[in-house]
């Protein structure tokens, strides 16, 4: 099994850290993982993206031009990455600020209203964990217990008190994700 994922959005949305947590989670489950960020100047205020690969086999290229799953958090990234999803693949997006909606018929499209939910829960910083929860619901490759272990590995100890809050956000994301085309 190999899952090739792109996570893309604005710098500051937690794109890179979500990818990092996903990679750590895969590692906690004895998978091979790779995490390759876009580290260009676009990160500062512009778009940020990271390629994460989870696999039961040795990973060859950390650089990809088509993906099994795209997790999309802003319009620019939707425009850029929707065409790069493999036929039959998955698009998960947060609809906040989206005006041109995804339209492909040959992929499965899921929406998670994570921005709205995060502010409703008064936990704006766990926005990315709501999205992660939605992803884990759709593609349950990694068990939740391993994700929580992954968060503990990824966060410095001084932030470990936030793990329960992150857990709540992940569960919430699992609950609110909806498929748009069936």
């Amino acid at each position: 099994m190999t899952e090739e994922i792109i996570i893309a959005g604005f710098g500051g949305q937690g794109v890179l850290s979500m990818g990092k947590i996903l990679a750590y989670s895969g590692m906690m489950q004895d998978m091979e993982v790779s995490w390759m960020p876009s580290y260009g100047p676009e990160m500062r205020g512009g778009t940020a993206n990271v390629t994460v690969i989870l696999s039961t086999d040795r990973i060859n290229s950390p650089i990809l031009n088509e993906f099994d799953t795209a997790i999309i958090l802003n319009q620019q990234s939707l425009d850029k990455f929707e065409p790069l999803i493999k036929p039959g693949g998955i698009l998960l997006y947060d609809n906040s600020g989206i005006t041109r909606f995804p339209g492909r018929k040959d992929i499965k499209i899921y929406c998670v209203e994570a921005t709205e939910e995060a502010s409703r829960m008064s936990m704006v910083k766990t926005f990315n964990m709501i999205v992660l929860g939605a992803y884990l619901k759709i593609q349950p490759f990694v068990k939740l217990e391993n994700v929580l272990k992954g968060i503990a590995k990824s966060l410095p100890p001084r932030h470990h008190h936030t793990i329960p809050m992150n857990n709540d956000a992940i569960i919430r994301g699992m609950e609110i994700v909806t498929q748009e085309n069936k």
């Binding site: 990092k20 990679a23 590692m27 091979e32 993982v33 790779s34 995490w35 390759m36 960020p37 580290y39 990973i59 950390p62 650089i63």
Partner: peptide, 10 residues
């Protein structure tokens, strides 16, 4: 190179 330097792996 920048890829191998910046990427994370086990």
């Amino acid at each position: 190179d920048g890829v191998i330097g910046q990427m994370m792996e086990k």
